[in-house]
Amino acid sequence: MKPKFPIYGYLAEFHDGAELLAAAKSSRAAGYTVMEAYTPVPMEEVAHTLGFRTSLPWIVLAGGVLGACVGFGLQYWTSVIDYPMNIGGRPMNSWPSFIVVTFEMTILFAAASAVLGMLWLNGLPQPYHPVFNVPAFELASRNRFFLMILSRDPQFDMAGTKSFMDGLGGLSVKEVPH
């Protein structure tokens, strides 16, 4: 499908986080919804301004529960069902002994789902992204703050959005090619 606009979006550059936050808020107020902000440090408030909350904790909880079930299930199945064996008179279902491995598996699965879930939801790895086309963007990992309004935004139009973003008070506004 041919994109509607010749560019991916507009990228405004800011000097510090407070300016970015203000710009994000006013863009939101102006009705823009398909935006992304780029910051050198994590800024929870910016994400919230963009209307975003993550569901990652639930994924991790699910991973942990799965890990616990797999951990205890593995031990129960191997020690009680598949190969019951008398070890020093202890019961087949030696649950006090099984707690440790159950615990470790819980942690392992939860940690793995935290990392993989984060990458998956973030769409990473993604070595190529249009925003990297802007030379100044390399400062996003140093000391500059960026706000991008994507051309996918229903309210986007080439001239209007440009002039709106010029009015946000950033250092510059650049086109992001596809």
Binding site: E36, A37, Y38, T39, P40, P42, M43, E44, V46, A47, H48, L50, F52, R53, T54, L56, P57, V60, G64, I107, A110, A111, A114, V115, G117, M118, L119, L121, N122, L124, P125, Q126, P127, Y128, H129, V131, F132, F137, A140, S141
Partner: peptide, 23 residues
């Protein structure tokens, strides 16, 4: 992995990092 410091990414990232610490 193509990290670019997007606000949404940071949000999930910080959540994941905090959860990892908790685990």
């Amino acid at each position: 992995l193509g990290w670019r410091g997007a606000a949404r990414h940071w949000e999930r990232y910080e959540t994941a990092y905090g959860l990892l610490a908790g685990l």
